[in-house]
Structures are given as C-alpha cells and as structure tokens.
Design a protein around this nucleic acid. Structure first.
Lengths: 138, 138
DNA sequence: TATTAAATAAGAAATATTTCTTAATTAAGA
DNA sequence: TCTTAATTAAGAAATATTTCTTATTTAATA
C-alpha cells in the first residue's frame, strides 16, 4: 500500500486528511511489524505532544474500516499493521495438496523485537491438513 | 519440557505443588502457542471457579523465574508459553554465514488463531545481516 | 473567504489489568 | 498427626486501556 493510495481511499470515503491522521499513516507506512495502540500513540506524541489518545484510537479504527490497516488481537491486545496485498506465506495440505494463503505474516509480530539482525528476506512454509482432509488423512 | 521435569524444578526450589499450580502447568503443557494471562485465568476458572487472578499472575511469574515458562511482551500484553529446548528456527547472515538461533518461534503467537488447518510441521528461514556485518556488507 | 461536516483536545467515565494486604488454608516433611 | 513456611482467596488499591461527551477547531469545497 502506497501513501497516495491510502489518501485516495480516505477521500473516496469523504474523510479529511488531517495532520494527525497523516502522521499515523506515515508511522504505519514506515513500520514492518505490528504496533499496539500505545506504541503508535507514543510516536504520534513526539510530533503532536497535545494529541488526544482518543484521536489515535479513532483513526486506527477508521483506517481499519476502510481496509488500510489490518487489526489483530494478540491476547488482550489490539494491534495494527499496514495491509499487505502480496501473500508470501502459504499453508500446504499434505493430503490434497491445496495451497492456502496466509493473510498474516507471523514474523511481523516479532520483527520489532529483533534488534541485532537486519532482515532481508524470509520464508515460511507450513504443512499439515486442511479442514476437508483433517478427518480423513489416508 | 515434560511435566515431571517441571515438577522437579519446583521441588528443587522448595516450591509446593498446589492443585492450582499443577493445573496451570497442565494448561501450558497442552498448549502450543502463547497465551495471555487472561486466557490462562479463564481456563483455570473452568476447574477452580473461585481461583483468584492473583494466583494466576503469581504462578506464571514464578514458573517464568525458574525457567519453565517463557514470557514475552507483545504490544502491552504479557504472554506465556512453555519453554522450548529445541531451536528449530535460525537466522543466517548473508555476509559471514553465521547461523544464529532464534529462541522464539514467531508462529507460536499465531497458532491459536489458525482454526481450519492442522499444522504438522513448519520451517522458518530468515536471511539478512548480523550485527557485525550490518555496517560492512561488501 | 464563507460554509459546514468532520475532526479535534480535554477531561470524564467506564473497563480492564496488575499489584498489594491480610487472614485463612494447605502441602510437605518431621 | 503436627508443625510451619508457602500458598491461597478476597477484596482493595493502583495502573492502564478504551470509550464517551462536549465545546472548539479545521480541511475541503463552493
């Protein structure tokens, strides 16, 4: 997702491009992994110290509603990440051979925590049994 | 980590094996991925409806202290998983070729959310630059 | 530039999470 | 079975997160 694309989506829905909203967009565009609301709020405050946390909640939720961000819940925690169009990760069924796209990247949750390694690329290969083959593996 | 091993660790530290503590251990042993404190608390309550959430916090923290559980923070959320001895996932440096062990499995955070697929195995391959080679890639 | 619907900050309110205190209970070993 | 240090439940307290209300400000378009 490019910035112009995101801005167009906002306009198409008659939402305004406020400085706060644009900053949140920039933060998410410059971020590989998932961030919690609090982490995003802290980053916004660096530029707008007076920002209301309500503004952050409101905008993240809105950006999710118009499919700019993906929202996920880990434990009790709401987290956001830029939406991806390309699906690099798949699950392959050992029985029927069907390939299922993983619309999430498990690595994105960890990327922020890996400090001593500059990640260039990664592959994830999951194998197992799909819904249809689960009960009939032979 | 097997149950007897965990119990021995408790005894070695002069900790008692209470029913609540044993249940928490069982829950974690029967769980592939990370769970939040709340998720664990809900499971404990199914057996001990009167359990205090403080008991859950206390025991999880204790089990982490004696290296039975791994604790991680995702966003604002504390999560726990059984400690693994086997490191299946590595990061390989493109420059010096060194292999670094990943003591976490990024997939464990997602495993609980994958409902329609029975995972048998998975591989994660990360490539990039290690700390020493980051600034000198040629 | 004037208009107006959308968005904002501020603060309160509602929930949720985490830690603490205390008195009662209990696991484990003598 | 007795003893005792460890553990517990209960409830309060301290924090943290999320939502709501209101008055004010502002982006976008005419």
């Amino acid at each position: 997702m490019h910035k112009q694309e995101a801005i167009k989506k906002l306009k198409d829905h008659n939402y305004k491009l406020t400085p706060q909203r644009e900053l949140i967009l920039d933060i998410m565009l410059n971020q590989q992994g998932y961030l919690s609301v609090r982490e995003i709020y802290e980053k916004v405050k660096e530029v707008f110290p007076q920002v209301s946390i309500d503004t952050v909640y409101r905008n993240l939720s809105l950006l999710k509603d118009i499919n700019i961000l993906n929202e996920t819940t880990i434990g009790n925690n709401i987290m956001y990440v830029m939406r991806k169009e390309i699906h690099n990760h798949t699950m392959r069924c050992l029985k029927c051979g069907k390939i299922f796209e993983l619309d999430i990247c498990p690595l994105e949750l960890w990327i922020n925590q890996i400090k001593d390694f500059e990640i260039v690329d990664h592959k994830i290969e999951i194998v197992g049994y799909c819904k249809d083959c689960m009960s009939n593996k032979n």
